[in-house]
């Protein structure tokens, strides 16, 4: 038997588990609520501005996303977005601004590796999987709905 699967190893993993420092979950959750709420509120503000400007509610969603992504990218460039996430956790990661952060952060860091294999590739480090599985899930959902209802 390999050492890493031995009884000694299993006993040690128990010891590690019982001595794990607690994650500050309550604090993390409260901050996630606050940050996620704030970013959504900003989004709502932008959306209302577009509606006031004459757009329908549905039409206003897309430009709102565009503006938020621009903000997320800019804050990442300025080096501020990682501070938002450090405190807000998923409250800053889950909104679409966090998606922008996940695209820009690796790309700007791999500038030195060149525009193609560096920036071009790294833009999709996190965004790639999100797009792949988002598009695939939507496709499957669409097919199932088509088969069940006759329209997608």
């Amino acid at each position: 038997m390999h050492q890493e699967d031995s009884d000694q190893a299993k006993a040690y993993q128990q010891l590690v588990k019982s001595n794990q420092p607690k994650k500050p979950i309550v604090k993390n959750v409260l901050l996630a609520f606050l940050y996620g709420g704030m970013i959504s509120l900003v989004g709502q503000g932008i959306q209302v501005a577009f509606i006031v400007g004459g757009m329908s509610k549905e039409d206003a969603t897309s430009p709102t996303t565009v503006v938020l992504i621009g903000l997320g990218a800019l804050l990442t460039g300025l080096g501020w977005y990682d501070q938002l996430t450090k405190h807000g956790g998923m409250g800053a990661t889950l909104p679409i601004t966090g998606f922008a952060n996940a695209m820009v952060a690796p790309a700007m860091e791999f500038r030195r590796e060149g525009l193609v294999m560096g920036v071009g590739v790294k833009l999709f480090t996190v965004a790639g999987p999100v797009l792949v599985y988002g598009l695939s899930a939507a496709f499957v959902v669409g097919v199932v709905r088509y088969l069940v209802t006759g329209v997608a």
């Binding site: 420092p21 607690k22 994650k23 993390n28 990442t76 080096g79 977005y81 990682d82 501070q83 938002l84 996430t85 450090k86 956790g89 800053a92 990661t93 966090g98 952060n101 996940a102 820009v104 952060a105 690796p106 700007m108 860091e109 791999f110 790294k122 480090t125 996190v126």
Partner: peptide
């Protein structure tokens, strides 16, 4: 990446 926001575990 440095600017990718995430929370460090304890």
């Amino acid at each position: 990446p440095i600017e990718l926001g995430y929370q460090r575990t304890p």
